[in-house]
Design a binder for these strands. Structure first.
Length: 243
DNA sequence: GCCCAGGTGGGTA
DNA sequence: TACCCACATGGG
């Protein structure tokens, strides 16, 4: 039997073996700006709806900072209607381009070249950009190693017994940042795999534990009769004492 | 018809 | 600080 890896790497390895590479924004047609727009549009929204909105924006030639800065808010809202919260998100996209022109001469590249702490602080100062969106931009558009936490991450790692269900964003993020190498490619793939697991198997209701690649690691495994659940998997024991 | 989705900001106690 | 709520479309 091979040597046991760190729990977080063991989980990653299992997810990757099960789902394979997710190819999140590897070279994005629309470039970094499309990634930023996608990160804002996907807030509390299924990605399939975001794709429709992005297609509308591309067709309307609105996927550039300049075009988005110039377009009327109502027209922008109409384009992104399929992504939901369209009035709100139009306002957020406008706030971002406004910020880009006011602070960085309209150059996204200039913004994304900032060091991680400065970039994050700048992004968090923009209306409509919170920690998850900021980190998604830093990781997927700026290609800087920062771990993106989302609702799936919280749910999955709470079920695994490695985080509290109400753990604040920063605490969850610190869990990963403290125990994984700061590798952009790893963080990219890990987050995408968490989304794949949360969306397909570790669902909020009716999770498919039977088919889960983390079966055997998870105390919440619903495919195990309740009275048979005895204790936390051994590989988490020592790990938990350190987190 | 009902639930859920890759959150965030604003208001109230 | 700690909740509670608005924001909205589309797929299962």
């Amino acid at each position: 039997m091979r040597a046991m890896q760190e729990p977080l790497m063991e989980i990653y390895a299992r997810l990757f073996a099960h789902f394979g590479a997710q190819h999140w924004w590897p070279h994005s047609e629309g470039g970094a700006f499309e990634i930023v727009v996608g990160a804002i549009l996907t807030q509390n929204t299924a990605w399939a709806n975001v794709e429709k909105a992005l297609a509308n924006l591309a067709r309307a030639r609105l996927l550039t900072p300049t075009a988005m800065q110039r377009v009327a808010p109502t027209r922008l809202a109409t384009s992104i209607r399929p992504s939901g919260y369209f009035n709100l998100k139009a306002k957020r996209l406008k706030a971002f381009t406004q910020f880009l022109f006011a602070e960085h001469r309209g150059s996204l590249a200039r913004l994304l070249a900032l060091a991680t702490p400065d970039l994050r602080a700048a992004l968090l100062g923009v209306y409509g950009i919170g920690p998850e969106t900021a980190d998604a931009i830093i990781l997927y558009a700026a290609h800087q190693p920062i771990f993106v936490v989302d609702a799936y991450t919280r749910r999955i790692f709470a079920r695994l017994g490695l985080a509290r269900a109400d753990a604040p964003y920063a605490e969850l993020q610190a869990l990963f940042m403290a125990h994984l190498p700061h590798d952009e490619k790893l963080f990219n793939e890990y987050h995408a795999l968490i989304v794949a697991l949360g969306k397909n198997l570790c669902r909020k209701t009716a999770p498919r534990c039977q088919a889960c690649p983390l079966r055997g690691l998870c105390p919440a495994d619903l495919s195990i009769p309740r009275k048979r659940v005895i204790m936390r998997p051994a590989i988490f024991q020592e790990f938990r004492s350190r987190i």
